[in-house]
Simulated assay, not measured.
Amino acid sequence: MYQQGDTVEVVRLLSVRKAYGKDRAQVLALDDVTAGFARGTFTAVMGPSGSGKSTLLHCAAGLDKPTSGTVTLGGTDLSVMREVELTKLRRDRIGFVFQAFNLLPALDVEQNVTLPLRLAGRRADPAFVRRVIEQVGLGKRRHHRPSELSGGQQQRVAIARALVTHPEVIFADEPTGALDTRSAQEVLSLLRDATNVSRQTIVMVTHDPVAASYADRVLFLADGRVVDELRQPNPDEVARRMTALVARTEQRSPEGPWLSELTR
């Protein structure tokens, strides 16, 4: 596990490059990205369309292998692992929350939440499962099926499912993209509480400045590179930097003092 000073980084990408295709058809999705995600922190990843933010999440989570560079999770190098090993690692050590809730319609809340444990052959602690379900505000709906829940409630089930395995990190890809404003705020508050109370590490891809403001910091990507970082973000500042970044990207000028221009 990488440590710098008193900060322990649960996930670290070092000089990660990801290319798709070959020769003239090659697309460089990540270009020499180095980034770390410390234990008990909430990081939002933002950038214009095609900036590489989803690719960064996929490489960091072991869903895709980098063309070069290394990705480590808790000291384990994902870059050299076989697919069967990666599958087990993702199941046992990583939590996922996506825009699509990915719940099984035939299972009730409690069964959906404990599904990762059953797939791993692990015994669920009933008291802990109940506590997690209550934590996401669904204690009275434990035996409801997804069709009996609102979109926001279904996403809360997905968060409980991610938390129940005690993951080292939770990766969230546009977790509020399909929700109304109120439900989105409830989901983001749950993620924020998971960091504040349980020291959960969360990495979230989002396009929404308000969602990003719930994080401890925001990483901004453009053309496959990390070009800016904002700590203790607020929606207005996030929106301002994104506007400047989009304008810069549209000019198709890959060179220049990104950070100074964005933070001016």
Rank of each mutant, 00 (worst) to 15 (best):
T67L: 07
V33G: 10
V203Q: 04
R252Y: 03
E174F: 11
A239I: 14
P235I: 03
G36S: 13
S54D: 00
D31T: 00
P126K: 09
M81L: 15
A100N: 10
V27A: 14
G224R: 00
D173R: 02
L89H: 01
D180V: 05
F42V: 06
V157T: 01
G52W: 01
T114K: 11
A178L: 03
R141D: 01
G69L: 01
A44H: 07
T165I: 15
L219I: 14
Q26H: 11
E186G: 00
T263Y: 07
L138V: 05
R252E: 06
F96R: 04
T41Y: 01
K140G: 09
A215R: 05
T67A: 12
V10H: 11
E255V: 15
R248H: 09
G95L: 05
D180A: 06
N112Q: 08
F101Y: 07
T76W: 00
P257D: 15
N102I: 10
T243H: 12
P126Y: 05
A212K: 04
P257K: 11
A212L: 03
I202L: 11
T41C: 05
K88M: 10
R182Y: 11
Q111H: 13
D31W: 11
D64H: 14
A120W: 08
L14I: 15
P48M: 01
A211F: 02
T195Y: 05
S15F: 07
A38H: 06
F128A: 07
G52H: 01
V169I: 12
A158R: 01
P233L: 02
L115M: 14
V238H: 07
G50Q: 09
D223C: 09
A215S: 15
E255D: 15
P235C: 08
